[in-house]
Every structure is written in structure tokens, then in C-alpha cells.
């Protein structure tokens, strides 16, 4: 009998934990540098018990949602403009490509100077980190629309405004959703990165606290939480949307 996918996964992660525990038991490194899985779980349990973990998660996710929402709205508008107006593409389009090559963390100094150590500063970093991925994917999506869709819609009386909402966005949606997915990935990195440097609540802040207290198990615990949220959003939220879109648009 072939082992199921779930069984394989469980086996794999169980193995990692066993090896980890084995390395810890071998006492090669001191405990304060290389904690055991139990230490990390204990640390997570502390975080749950005093709710500081939930507070951290909630703060980070709130910043992510606000930033990503702004980035998605802005990226959609910018991407559609670039795809429909050649001059906008030739001018702003080249700038967008350039800006996208700047890692979002590189915006942090500017954000601190402009906004101080505030929520707004962190959200600024998230928006800047995510907006260009949404823009570029939206642009590509709109450029790749089957021209017959647009012609059929115009033929049936659609004006440019109606065209955007009723044809351009839905027709480009398979691309736009990859833009959202990339945007979310950049945004999540941006949130954590910015929080580390801003040191102003959130999961990134908890990471920094762990470092300042020399608490390696807290650092690892928070990293696991960050990864867990990433897996959840990618593997559950986006996978569901993507599956539906791919099927309905006839892409598989």
C-alpha cells in the first residue's frame, strides 16, 4: 500500500523533530544556543497562556491586511492604467519595474524618517513591498486578455468604465490572483522585517525581544509561527481561490 500524502508529511516532520531532539540530547551545543523542541513548545505555550502571542499575531496580521488592501487597490488601478494607456506604460511602467527591484526592507529607513516609529510607517513599508507585484501581474493579465472578450463587450454596448469592472478585471483574474499571492508574500516579509527594525509590537517585535533576552527558543517559536501563518495563507486561502479560478477559466 502506498502511504498517503498526509502520512508522508507527518512522517517527515516527525523525523525532523526526532533528529532535532537527538541533536539536543547529544549535548553538542549548550541549551541556551540550541534549545530542544520541548523548550520551543513550552515557549509557545507561555505565549498562548499570557496571550502575548495572539496579540503579536493579531497586530502583525492587522498591519498586513491594511497594507495589502491598499496595495491591491493601488496595484489594480496602476496595472490597468498601464495596460490601457501606452504613455502610462512607457513612463510609470519603467519606474514600477525599477522600484520593484528594491527590497521592501530597504524602505524602512525612509519610512522611519517620514512617519516615525508608528503603525503608519510599517504599513507604508508593506504597501510599497506589495503594490508593484500586484501592478505588474495586473498589467500582464490585462495585456493577455483574449481581444474577442473586449470586442464582444464593446459590441454589446459596454463603455470604458463598464469594460474595466465587467471584463478587464474578471478576464485578467487568473493573473491578478498571482499578483495577490506574490503581493501577500512580499507584504508578509515586509511586515515582519519592518517590525524587527521599528520594534513596535507584532511578531517581528517579539522576535527582536527574543534576541535581546538571548532567548533562542522564543526566537525559534516565533519563526515557526511566522512560517505556520505563511503555510496557512498560501496552502489554504490562495490554493482554494486558485483552484476555483483555474477550473472556471478553463485553464486546466
Amino acid at each position: 500500500m502506498k502511504p498517503s500524502l498526509l502520512a508522508k508529511k507527518i512522517g517527515f516532520y516527525a523525523m525532523i523533530i526526532i533528529v532535532w531532539q537527538g541533536l539536543d540530547s547529544a549535548d553538542i551545543w549548550p541549551d541556551n544556543i540550541f534549545p530542544s523542541p520541548v523548550d520551543v513548545v513550552e515557549d509557545l505555550a507561555y505565549g498562548v497562556a499570557d496571550a502575548s502571542l495572539f496579540y503579536g499575531i493579531g497586530t502583525s496580521i492587522l498591519r498586513l491586511i491594511i497594507g495589502l488592501t491598499i496595495a491591491i487597490a493601488g496595484g489594480l488601478v496602476l496595472g490597468i492604467f498601464m495596460a490601457r494607456v501606452e504613455t502610462v506604460n512607457q513612463t510609470i511602467g519603467s519606474l514600477v519595474l525599477g522600484l520593484q527591484s528594491i527590497p521592501s526592507i530597504a524602505w524602512v529607513p525612509l519610512a522611519i524618517l517620514w512617519f516615525g516609529l508608528t503603525d503608519t510607517g510599517i504599513i507604508f513599508v508593506v504597501v510599497i513591498g506589495a503594490i508593484f507585484a500586484v501592478t505588474i501581474n495586473t498589467y500582464t493579465g490585462v495585456k493577455n486578455i483574449n481581444p474577442s472578450y473586449i470586442e464582444a463587450a464593446r459590441n454589446m454596448g459596454a463603455k470604458e468604465g463598464q469594460l474595466i469592472t465587467s471584463i478587464l478585471i474578471p478576464a485578467a483574474f487568473p493573473f491578478i490572483i498571482s499578483g495577490f499571492k506574490q503581493g501577500w508574500a512580499f507584504a508578509w516579509r515586509g511586515v515582519i522585517g519592518a517590525e524587527l527594525l521599528f520594534s513596535f509590537l507584532g511578531l517581528g517585535f517579539l522576535l527582536n525581544v527574543g534576541r535581546q533576552l538571548n532567548d533562542v527558543s522564543q526566537v525559534i517559536a516565533i519563526m515557526i509561527v511566522i512560517m505556520g501563518i505563511g503555510i496557512l495563507v498560501d496552502g489554504v486561502v490562495f490554493k482554494k481561490i486558485e483552484d476555483k479560478v483555474m477550473t472556471r477559466w478553463g485553464l486546466r
Partner: peptide, 9 residues
């Protein structure tokens, strides 16, 4: 249209 140009969404 030749290929119908129906909207898949």
C-alpha cells in the same frame, strides 16, 4: 465570433 468569445467567469 468564430470561437464564441463567451466569458468564462
Amino acid at each position: 465570433f468564430q470561437e464564441g468569445a463567451l466569458f468564462p467567469w
